[in-house]
Amino acid sequence: MVTVKATDSGKSVDDALNAVLNNPDVQASLVLALEKLPMVMEQYASIERTLGFVTAVLKDKESLTNLMGGLKQELPPVTLDHETLVALLTLLDKLPKLVRYLELLETGADFVESVLTDKESVKYLLDNAKEWVEPWESKVRQTLSHVETARKRAESDNTPVSVFSLMKLLKEPAAQRGVHFLKAFLEVAGESS
């Protein structure tokens, strides 16, 4: 490595420069630098043009106003302050976990959509639901019809209720079962007390 010592006299500077320029390494570097000079100048000019454009835009208040106005219209109003930035960074940190949940949610939503848009599946579910409900439905309907018929008969029956008719009623199997159950229940209740 060549070092140049600053001296007060011009002679010593010349000597030092000569010494440097006589160094073959320095000479080779200078040749290389000169060779690359056009390319460096081209890049420099490009940077200068870009800076010029940025400076021109920044000076052009009209363009800047239009640009900011346009952005305000296109984007939702955002207040970029310290709090927003901290929240943004926290969100970025949580993103891997959130994406996992979102994927699950997306799968679930896609499945629901897939079922609802699948006419054959919807028909299958509805037909089978009907199959399960139908026996209960007909049983309920039958019971209601029995109740209605009994109500009508009772309303039209004006004959007085005698002891004989009560005895006849007690012989009915349904009444017998009820009485037997009542009897057994009272016995069990008596035993436990």
């Binding site: 799968t107 896609d110 499945f111 897939s114 079922v115 699948d118 054959e120 599946s121 299958y124 579910l125």
Partner: peptide
């Protein structure tokens, strides 16, 4: 059957 047609075969 629903899980098959609308879940499994759809890659869900």
């Amino acid at each position: 059957p629903i899980i098959y047609w609308d879940g499994m075969l759809k890659g869900l």
